[in-house]
Design a protein around this nucleic acid. Structure first.
Length: 946
RNA sequence: GCCGAAGUGGUGGAAUUGGUAGACACGCUGGACUCAAAAUCCAGUGCUAGCGAUAGUGUGCGGGUUCGAGUCCCGCCUUCGGUACCA
């Protein structure tokens, strides 16, 4: 009986769905285990073979845990709000909901074919009102809470208001942006608008002025990746920074806990390091410099207070609030010019010219509090508005950027740290001896820092402060396809939360998806929706992509609950994600925001755990091979001319361009000899009408397309082949459906696992998939002969048991350490061995089916059924390793002399240390290499695997 | 620049704690079966020398520690990913 994957896979796919084999309950006597995949955005291109890599790994693990007796939650859903659908809507007029639904259907059918064990009854979509109701609900909670640093948790804003009413804000210790102090009396006399403004400085979801990339020509706000070389990617129009009132989330309030709790997590050190760097904690001093001739002070943050004697000038961010006030009349024009210049510069620009220093003098002078010298105040774009206080004391002797600035503008440099005792140390190292610094002279840098911190505090010039690189993220998007904010504004512009009972605020329908001319979202045009009957106006911004994905893993626990985002019971049962599998691209975005939201919900008592994702595995990316053909810019008789790579040296690089051609046309792809043969050239000519009459320059001459239909021998148009993104634009997307169709899902799954370690990136290459296909046929042939099932109930011999249990041990260990490629090869070894032994005994082959089931769910289910077993193999038990089966009579001892293997000797396992040494010393080979001498030392090592 | 990951046959990769380097698979070579092909099976396959037993050599490069190093230490080189003037 032949192995026919197509037939048996469709049979079991249907059977599993009908019998709801993968449905999981929130109640069970079994221990829970939660395996989560990263939320996919259902793009129009569908899944390519790279996407399911992580899904396959997590599916194997979920199935393994299920067989190990766990109640496994393994859900899937869609992050279905997003920009591409909106862009598509603008171009085609198709409602984002319609295109998204279609894309989801494609995704679902692609996922189903691969045989994942998802409980689809728990599917969630972020764009579903019953889902985003709770995204809005969490937003309201953020809006209605502030972070109390004494309690070290989020507390209701109402208790803060009570404090304001009785005692003002002087004693409030909160994560906030409120700077001035007010009394209870002052609070009471404030207008509603003033109170709202102050509360915004405390709320965890708050509004502040933020800068967006504004493109006047397109009349829209652009995301960073929609900008190329400082102009819009579409159309190449200029982009400027524009100030707009934006919603933000105060993630900085949680910086310390986000940093600290990383220690609890089983994440890779690499990923933890990325998060630590992103949070960027630094300790230093916050201090004030007086301005000469005014009452204003400049607040700065420094990690190097010990270098203050070397501070010869100050630099403010161009956007700093003090700039207009301190600029003297004679420098006004110059400063304004500079600010205009900075506004025109995109983040991309700044990156490209990182080395060049720019800035201008404001005419103002500050007083160095220790030297009492007047030092000039400059503005420069290298000082960032949002980091620290947006102002620095510049110490050109001890900071590279300050030094470059001082050199360019001729500012004085005073050496304050003598590093001669620390050869090789850089300016970044806090080492050296302080010089030219009055009372600090002679101190080592760390001591001097501590000394200065005390001095600064005692002189009341400032205080110790911990600063974070982490910034509050912009939470507003001027877009249509996202969650509407549950916020209304009254006539004074005071933000009023929508009542919980009125949630969700449903995203209204729209015909025209282009943005409103003033840069607001398309929703602003729906005046009927914006202006409510009771005189309020609605917020027209929508939430960003990460809103819905910051808490989705909680919704899976109880997806149909309409009274809560998830019931207490469900949350207390499932608690947190035990295993999360996904790519590193989410290292600092999604993974940081989810942790932040989760901690917030924990503070409010809604979730029982402080961290959402206990263990995290990063899967590598599967890249595509991109094949570039060389095309001359100048056409020949109006037709395209392709040049073989081995002829391209004749031309100047400016004469030709590289064009990605469809990967299916290319032979020997991925090697240095990648080329199109005659068939490939034929296919290329038929691919695009413009290539129909193309010319091809090969080593032997230039030929028209027609030539390759008659002459097919030895034709090679060489192309450049390189690894890169798998993407529509490179014509190198491989659809998993095609793989499943050709080889079957089991083969496809096992091949992706066999490719290499899960966390490693590699280009997609089907060379070698036949090896896995052969393995599955061989595996099948252990159970069936030409007439059907062919299994005996004979008692297995020792050797057969040894093969089985060796495999059980190896596969179990490999699954536990996520080494799926070696597990697959262990199966291959096992099947090769059993085949050699002609084993067809039930006692060996039945456990083997259970062992392979997580990897190849279809073939094993079929065999399980044919073996006459009850129920699904996926509800059976994972085989247990029996060490007794591995005991053998003799052990092969490799013998090394001076670290080189010289002999292999088989010695009975009963032999003692001394006996082993005797046997070894008597071996002729050992005798030969000892050359008559006695060994100085002998080491006997037991084998680790037995 | 900084942070992170990785360099092993013709190719993907294995070697889990310092102990037989190259498992498993692809490819390639030869053979069996076949009229032929496909499929399947058998043998070989790091490099060099040798008919062979065998010997030498070999994990990016240069040193070191050790009885023994792909693995540990020091100094480099290369590739990939992230980041961007972070005071």
């Amino acid at each position: 009986m032949q192995y026919n994957p197509e037939q048996l896979e469709s049979r079991w796919r249907k059977e599993w769905e009908d019998k709801k084999v993968y449905k999981v309950d929130n109640e069970s006597a079994k221990p829970k285990y939660y395996v989560l995949d990263m939320f996919p955005y259902p793009s129009g291109a569908g899944l390519h073979v790279g996407h399911p890599l992580g899904y396959m790994a997590s599916d194997i693990f979920a199935r393994y845990k299920r067989l190990k007796g766990f109640n496994v939650l393994h859900p899937m859903g869609y992050d279905s709000f997003g920009l591409p659908a909106e862009q598509y809507a603008i171009q085609t007029g198709v409602h984002p909901e319609t295109s998204t639904e279609n894309n989801i259907k494609t995704y679902r059918s692609q996922l189903d074919k691969i045989g994942f064990s998802y409980d689809w009854s728990r599917e969630v979509k972020t764009s579903d009102p019953s889902y985003y109701k709770w995204t809005q609900w969490i937003f309201l909670k953020l809006f209605q809470h502030y972070y109390d640093l004494d309690a070290d948790k989020a507390l209701p804003i109402d208790t803060l208001i009570q404090t304001f009413e009785t005692a003002g804000n002087a004693d409030v210790n909160a994560a906030c942006t409120q700077e001035s102090i007010f009394s209870a009396q002052e609070w009471k006399t404030m207008t509603a608008g003033q109170k709202d403004e102050i509360l915004m400085n405390y709320r965890l979801a708050y509004r502040k002025t933020g800068y967006v990339n504004w493109c006047e020509a397109l009349g829209t706000v652009l995301a960073n990746d929609e900008i190329k070389d400082g102009v819009s990617e579409r159309g190449g129009h200029p982009v400027v920074k524009k100030a707009m009132l934006q919603w933000s989330l105060r993630i900085t309030a949680y910086a310390e806990r986000l940093l600290h709790d990383l220690d609890k997590l089983e994440w890779s050190d690499a990923l933890k390091a990325m998060q630590r760097n992103w949070i960027g904690r630094s300790e230093g001093a916050q201090m004030f410099f007086e301005l000469d001739g005014t009452s204003e002070k400049i607040e700065i943050f420094t990690t190097r207070p010990d270098t203050i004697f070397g501070a010869t000038f100050m630099v403010l961010a161009p956007e700093h609030a003090l700039v207009p006030a301190i600029t003297t009349p004679e420098y006004k024009a110059q400063v304004e010019n500079y600010i205009t210049y900075v506004k025109s510069r995109s983040d991309v620009d700044r990156m490209a010219e990182a080395k060049e220093v720019t800035g201008t003098f404001t005419g103002a002078y500050a007083i160095n509090p220790f030297t009492q010298e007047k030092i000039p105040v400059w503005i420069a774009e290298y000082v960032l508005k949002d980091y620290g206080t947006g102002a620095i004391m510049a110490v050109p002797s001890d900071d590279e950027r300050d030094q470059a600035f001082a050199k360019k503008f001729g500012l004085p440099i005073i050496d304050v740290v003598d590093k001669s005792d620390y050869p090789g140390s850089t300016l970044h190292d806090k080492t050296g001896k302080i010089i030219n610094s009055g009372f600090l002279n002679g101190m080592e840098v760390p001591d001097a820092i501590e000394h200065m911190l005390q001095k600064i505090e005692s002189m009341q010039l400032g205080k110790r402060k911990v600063n974070y690189k982490l910034r509050d993220a912009n939470f507003s998007r001027q877009r249509y396809w996202g969650e509407p904010f549950p916020i209304l504004y009254d006539k004074d512009g005071v933000a009023i939360p929508v009542d919980e009972s009125a949630l969700p605020v449903v995203l209204p329908d729209l015909k025209d998806y282009t943005p409103s001319p003033d840069g607001r979202s398309p929703l602003a045009r729906l005046t009927d929706w914006v202006n409510t009957s009771d005189g309020y106006t609605r917020e027209t911004d929508t939430m960003p992509g990460y809103a819905g994905s910051s808490w989705y893993f909680l919704r899976y626990m109880d997806p149909d609950n309409s009274a809560e985002f998830a019931s207490k019971k469900a949350l207390n049962y499932w608690r947190d994600v035990d295993l999360y599998v996904g790519g590193t691209e989410h290292a600092v975005g999604h993974l940081m925001y989810s942790r932040f939201w989760h901690k917030f919900l924990y503070d409010l008592g809604y979730v029982p755990t402080t961290e959402p994702f206990r263990k995290l595995i990063n899967q590598g990316m599967i890249q595509g091979m991109i094949a570039y053909a060389f095309v001359l810019k100048e056409k020949k008789d109006g037709s395209t001319v392709f040049v073989s790579k081995d002829c391209i040296d004749k031309y100047q690089p400016s004469d030709y361009i590289k064009t990605a051609v469809h990967i299916d046309f290319v032979s020997e792809n991925g090697s240095g000899t990648a080329h199109l043969n005659a068939k490939g050239i034929q296919a290329l000519c038929q691919w695009r009408q413009e290539y129909e009459n193309a010319y091809f320059e090969l080593k032997s001459g230039i030929y028209p397309a027609s030539y390759f239909y008659e002459n097919t021998e030895n034709i090679k148009l060489y192309v450049a082949s390189e690894a890169g993104k798998m993407s529509k634009r490179y014509h190198n997307v491989v659809n998993p459906d095609d793989m499943v169709k050709k080889y079957g899902a089991d083969c496809f799954r096992m091949y992706e696992m066999f490719l290499g370690p899960i966390e490693q990136s590699k280009p997609w290459d089907t060379n070698g998939i036949e090896g896995v296909q052969k393995f599955l046929r061989k595996f099948w042939s252990l159970y069936y002969n030409e007439n059907g099932l062919h299994i005996t109930n004979d008692t297995p011999v020792k050797e057969e048991l040894k093969v089985l249990h060796q495999t059980i041990k190896k596969v179990t260990d490999d699954i536990e350490r996520f080494s799926f490629n070696t597990a697959v090869s262990a199966f291959m070894v096992c099947v090769n061995e059993l085949k050699r032994l002609n084993c067809n005994k039930r006692e060996i082959l039945q456990p083997l089916v259970r062992l392979l089931a997580p990897f190849a769910p279809f073939i094993t289910e079929q065999i399980w059924f044919d073996l006459g077993e009850q129920g699904s193999v996926h509800h059976s038990e994972f085989p247990v390793f029996d060490p007794a089966c591995l005991e053998s009579d003799a052990i092969e001892y490799p013998v090394s002399i001076n670290g080189k293997k010289r002999d292999v000797i088989s010695i009975p396992s009963t032999a003692s240390q001394e006996e082993i040494q005797d046997i070894v010393l008597q071996s002729p080979m050992v005798q030969k290499w000892l050359e008559g001498q006695q060994p100085k030392k002998m080491h006997h090592r037991t084998r680790k695997n037995d």
